[in-house]
Amino acid sequence: MALNRDAILGAVDVQTEKVPVPEWNGDVIVRGLTGDELDNFQGSIRQFRPTFDGKGMEPVLVQDGMRAKLLVKCLVDEAGERLFTDQDAPALGAKNGSVIDRLYDVAARLSGLSEEEKAEMEGNSGTLEEAVASTSSSPETSAAPSQNY
């Protein structure tokens, strides 16, 4: 049976997960982002700069505080209310790096960040263009990856 509009809009589909954080002497609840929140987060870590030849613009990833920027949107209380505001990202980012990284992994998974995009955001592979293309709903195929020398 195909879902109708009301069934889709009424579905409670944002996931949460309780994560033990022994370094903080307790657990935290991580909530995945909604589609709008994910778009907002992705937009907040992307900027455009002129290409080397000056004839166009290219996307660049701003990694400063990236993990904390995601976590302030995803850490919630028992009622599902955010624990932090976006302005709290620098303070949260000053906490233990291994804890932040561990919680970021959970938040990214619950929010539907693709492995390719997550790797690009972490600076591990590919290009930002490839990461953007990997989350596109376009039926077209991506261009072949450029060679990096």
Rank of each mutant, 00 (worst) to 15 (best):
Gly10Cys: 05
Gly10Ile: 09
Gly10Lys: 08
Ala11Tyr: 10
Ala11Leu: 13
Val12Cys: 14
Asp13Pro: 01
Asp13Ser: 14
Val14Trp: 05
Val14Met: 10
Gln15Pro: 01
Gln15Tyr: 07
Lys18Ser: 14
Val19Gln: 04
Val19Asp: 12
Val19Ala: 05
Val21Glu: 13
Val21Ser: 08
Glu23Lys: 10
Trp24Ile: 09
Val28Glu: 10
Val28Ile: 10
Val28Ala: 04
Val28Ser: 00
Gly32Gln: 13
Leu33Ala: 03
Leu33Pro: 05
Leu33Met: 06
Leu33Tyr: 03
Thr34Phe: 07
Gly35Asn: 08
Asp36Ser: 12
Asn40Thr: 10
Phe41Ala: 02
Gln42Cys: 04
Gly43Tyr: 00
Gly43Gln: 12
Ser44Leu: 07
Ser44Gln: 11
Arg46His: 06
Pro50Gly: 04
Thr51Lys: 14
Phe52Pro: 11
Phe52Ile: 15
Asp53Trp: 00
Lys55Trp: 06
Gly56Thr: 06
Gly56Tyr: 05
Met57Asn: 06
Glu58Asn: 03
Glu58Trp: 00
Pro59Lys: 00
Pro59Leu: 02
Pro59Gly: 06
Val60Cys: 11
Leu61Met: 10
Leu61Ala: 03
Leu61Ser: 04
Val62Asn: 12
Asp64Lys: 15
Gly65Asp: 08
Met66Thr: 00
Ala68Tyr: 02
Ala68Phe: 02
Ala68Leu: 00
Lys69Arg: 15
Lys69Met: 04
Leu71Val: 02
Cys74Met: 02
Cys74Arg: 00
Cys74Glu: 09
Val76His: 06
Asp77Ile: 09
Glu81Thr: 12
Arg82Cys: 00
Arg82Glu: 09
Phe84Leu: 13
Asp86His: 03
Ala89Trp: 03
Ala89Thr: 06
Pro90Thr: 12
Pro90Leu: 10
Leu92Glu: 09
Leu92Ser: 10
Gly93Val: 01
Ala94Asn: 06
Asn96Arg: 13
Val99Tyr: 05
Ile100Asn: 06
Leu103Glu: 00
Leu103Pro: 00
Leu103Met: 00
Asp105Cys: 12
Asp105Glu: 15
Asp105Thr: 09
Val106Gln: 02
Ala107Met: 03
Ala107Gln: 07
Ala107Glu: 06
Ser111Arg: 05
Leu113Gly: 03
Ser114Lys: 01
Ser114Ile: 04
Ser114Arg: 03
Glu116Arg: 07
Glu116Gln: 14
Glu116Tyr: 04
Lys118His: 07
Ala119Glu: 09
Ala119Phe: 04
Glu122Leu: 14
Gly123Lys: 11
Asn124Arg: 12
Ser125Cys: 06
Thr127Pro: 00
Thr127Lys: 01
Glu129Ile: 03
Glu130Phe: 01
Ala131Met: 02
Ala131Cys: 05
Ala131Gln: 05
Ala133Asn: 12
Ala133Ser: 07
Thr135Leu: 08
Thr135Trp: 02
Thr135Asn: 09
Ser136Tyr: 04
Ser137Gln: 06
Ser137Glu: 13
Pro139Met: 13
Thr141Ile: 12
Ser142Cys: 07
Ala143Trp: 10
Ala143Cys: 01
Pro145Ala: 14
Pro145Tyr: 08
Gln147Cys: 08
Tyr149Thr: 07
